[in-house]
Simulated assay, not measured.
Amino acid sequence: MSPRSALVSVQNLTRVFDVSKPWLNRVIERLPKRYLTAVSDVSFDIPARTTYALVGESGSGKSTIGKMVVGLLRPSEGHVTIDGVDLATETDPAVIDRIRTDIQMIFQDPFASLNPRWKVRDIITEPVAARGGDVTGLAEKLLTQVGLAPEDAGKYPHQFSGGQRQRLCVARALASEPKLIVCDEPTSALDVSVQAQVLNLMSDLKEEHGLTYLFISHDLTVVRHMADRIGVLYLGRLVEEATPDDLFTKPAHPYTAMLIDAAPKLDAFGREVTPPEGEIPDPIDPPKGCAFHPRCPLAIDRCKAERPKLEPFGAGRVACHRAGEIALESAA
């Protein structure tokens, strides 16, 4: 596999959840089954040694995609292939074990993702010990790499701050020498100054270990400096994909432009930030046509009737009937 070939390929990924009331309630109240489409027909590739970021408001499907990529959820439709292997359909135990070793995940809450009854040494070495590997000195080595002291291996998680705990999670993720790490809002529970430290650490480790990241976040200012490519999600669908420079200087989708306008800016002291207008529609009963049209200031009749397809646009992709007009206005 060449250095820039796709390590991860997500094709037409869909996940539907049954959110119906219990059977007896439905019979008594004469209610139909209800389904929530959390992710709908999402496709993207992540080349090896790069960072792909997924951004969007809460409920847009970011974490659901992350869980399907690592195998915690099975897709309702579509495929996720990692290094050419689809874990949902692969039957060879040796291949499945190899690919699972190549995947790790860093969760949002560093307080909930560490076993409070285990010492740090056991937490970090668990991925290797579970496969019978040699863990002698491993915890001490990884603690040093993430900026902690080797003697911290004998402590418990409650003896660390939030930022230090997230460093422990990074060390645990590195233990099995993975190729892919899925980062599900890894800094959202941390103070801003601590966020910067953890993000810088992750960038350094990416270069040192040749890692590939799927970085999930609602914070555009974070992904701008972390990602090689950004996908914007709205109500379970990918509405735009571009490089950070293109996305922030000439967004092609009005939802992307709205998110950027609402993001904190260093030069915005004293200015009033316009919050995103409206709310995300009910995902159980989404609007017809473009799901964003009830909130879109540029919506036309076509937007209300016809769902736009995600199509190539410049160096990226966009799902918007008026993308060309938006680009011309931005240029002007």
Rank of each mutant, 00 (worst) to 15 (best):
S2I: 13
S9V: 13
V10K: 12
Q11A: 13
P22F: 11
P22N: 02
R30W: 07
R34T: 15
L36T: 07
T37A: 07
V42F: 03
R49W: 06
T50G: 06
A53K: 11
G56T: 12
G56D: 09
E57Y: 12
S60K: 11
S60V: 12
M68A: 12
V70D: 03
V80Y: 12
V80I: 14
G84W: 11
T89F: 01
D92L: 06
I103A: 05
I106N: 06
D109C: 02
F111H: 14
D122G: 01
P127N: 02
P127E: 06
A130G: 04
R131Q: 13
R131K: 14
A139T: 04
E140V: 00
K141F: 03
L143G: 07
T144L: 10
A149M: 13
A153M: 05
P157W: 04
Q166V: 10
A173C: 05
E177W: 03
A189R: 00
A189T: 01
V198N: 07
H209T: 00
H209M: 10
L211W: 11
L214V: 10
R224T: 09
H225I: 00
D228W: 01
R237A: 06
T243H: 00
T243R: 12
P244C: 02
P244I: 03
D245Q: 14
D245R: 15
T249R: 14
T256G: 05
D261Q: 15
D261V: 09
A263M: 10
L266H: 09
A268W: 12
P275R: 09
E277S: 15
I280A: 15
I284S: 14
D285T: 14
P286S: 01
K288M: 11
A291N: 11
F292M: 05
H293C: 00
P294L: 05
C296G: 06
P297V: 08
C303Y: 09
K304C: 04
K304T: 14
E306H: 10
P308W: 03
K309H: 13
L310C: 00
G314K: 08
G316V: 06
G316T: 10
R317E: 13
C320G: 12
A327C: 06
